[in-house]
């Protein structure tokens, strides 16, 4: 994404692609005699509206580039969801008590100012954070957190 405008066009292109996929899928949806419009009717209306709006926004931003003044998303921001997804994938087999402290430790380290005390701070956040989640959800509202390896 070299510039905010190209990022915006990439986003609109992705939307058009999603619309295309959903439009094709809408032909596979069942239709019953008693239903005058069927379950594909509404998504198709929305897809048409979305494509019209995307076209309008694209044309407007080409004709006058300063209309929407987008900014380029910082790709480093996606490190957080990437790390979170890794945690979500691992928490079920490993378990809450074993997977959460390393996850919180890494996050604390990632957000910590660079200094010699980062590791101690990270360990403290890992312990306190894990206990807090356990206290609120497992002890407080009786949610069964993934037991993972400790269940065996």
């Amino acid at each position: 994404m070299s510039s905010p405008r190209s990022a915006h066009f990439l986003f609109l292109s992705c939307l058009v692609l999603v619309c295309a996929v959903l439009f094709v899928r809408s032909f596979y949806l069942p239709r019953f005699d008693w239903d005058p419009v069927g379950m594909a009717f509404w998504p198709r209306v929305l897809i048409a509206a979305l494509l019209c709006l995307a076209a309008w926004i694209s044309i407007t931003s080409v004709r006058s580039p300063d209309t929407y003044s987008p900014t380029r998303p910082d790709t480093r921001g996606f490190r957080l969801p990437a790390l979170s997804l890794l945690y979500i994938v691992s928490v079920e087999p490993i378990g809450f008590l074993l997977a959460t402290p390393p996850f919180l430790f890494l996050l604390a380290l990632g957000w910590s100012p660079v200094s010699g005390r980062s590791i101690i701070r990270g360990l403290a956040v890992a312990v306190v954070g894990t206990f807090l989640v356990l206290a609120v959800f497992q002890l407080g509202v009786d949610v069964e957190l993934p037991p993972g390896l400790l269940d065996r």
């Binding site: 945690y87 957000w111 100012p113 954070g129 807090l132």
Partner: peptide, 21 residues
């Protein structure tokens, strides 16, 4: 920030998880 954000994210994850397990 290094203390608030990790705990907040963990609370969000388990707050959402608790809705339907």
């Amino acid at each position: 920030l290094y203390a608030l954000n990790p705990v907040l994210l963990a609370m969000c994850i388990y707050g959402v998880f608790s809705l339907n397990n």
